[in-house]
Design a protein around this nucleic acid. Sequence first.
DNA 1: TCCAAGTATCTTGATGTCGAGATATCTCCA
DNA 2: TGGAGATATCTCGACATCAAGATACTTGGA
Lengths: 163, 163
Amino acid sequence: MRDEVDDLSEAWARERPDLDLAPVAVFSRLSRLSRRLDLARRNAFTAHGIESWEFDVLAALRRAGEPYELSPGRLLRETLVTSGTMTNRVDRLTARGLVERLPDPADRRGVLVRLTPEGKAAVDGAFEALLAAEREFLSGLDERQQDQLASLLRTLLVPFSER
Amino acid sequence: MRDEVDDLSEAWARERPDLDLAPVAVFSRLSRLSRRLDLARRNAFTAHGIESWEFDVLAALRRAGEPYELSPGRLLRETLVTSGTMTNRVDRLTARGLVERLPDPADRRGVLVRLTPEGKAAVDGAFEALLAAEREFLSGLDERQQDQLASLLRTLLVPFSER
DNA sequence: TCCAAGTATCTTGATGTCGAGATATCTCCA
DNA sequence: TGGAGATATCTCGACATCAAGATACTTGGA
């Protein structure tokens, strides 16, 4: 079975036979899949009336467990965005009533963002829809292959997870 | 070796023990890696004075081979962006002198975007820098594992490459 | 030949993100 | 204890993207 990246790699090999193109086979696929995944996520979420960026924040809070509170700083590290972006996201989620901002009792510079009951309901529904869409996405691989893939990706991710 | 997604998966398992979380192990890693890869790409390119979006367009033209021409429509399918985005990108690349717009002799609605010699030099330099950065990224995997990974990703991508 | 439907590209307005800088508070050591 | 440097969050302007719609041209069938 060929995919679009096979074509792309061949084209590069034809044009730049002097280069070692091994990384292309992995990373072009990685970024293209990620793009497709984003679209699928967006789709899965619209039925639940939330946006991908909203899910990212709500999910981080939901995973944290009771009382569903994290600081903006923690949230931006979890979701890999900048502080300006997170301020903006929390503003908009607050306006929608899905989270609320509380002063951090332990640090007067700080703030805690807490999931509201509405936010919790929204994220729980959306997460189930996301899992269903992702399962569909994965259907070409059997269980053993899925594990193998997860394990290979983990190896690539480990260097970024240290400290 | 644990990565950040191991933590994330455990947190979900604790909070939602009712759900089958298998897809998370693959797709959370996929999107996080893609995010890291984007940052690494941006870094590799800045030394060459171009942006990631510029590279995407220039690379598609470069791969096409002499005379390095593609239509905007073809470019947007290659780079997975919308037509409005591509118009804007070609405008800016034209202003920088890296591409030029020509009327399509075969279709008066159409346009051809052609790489200039400056554009070709820019994309060739940037591509080598990108490959170097990506090789670094891949260094945790031996050759056999790289092939395995590419092959598993291909399987996921095939359904999108048909037609 | 004519026209309706299809196709290619561009325009426009809304939006989300980033990066740099501002402010307030905390930490820790001389 | 005083203060320098670190940290947490927010502000603001620039910018790239998207979605929807406009325009111009092409195609195929009546």
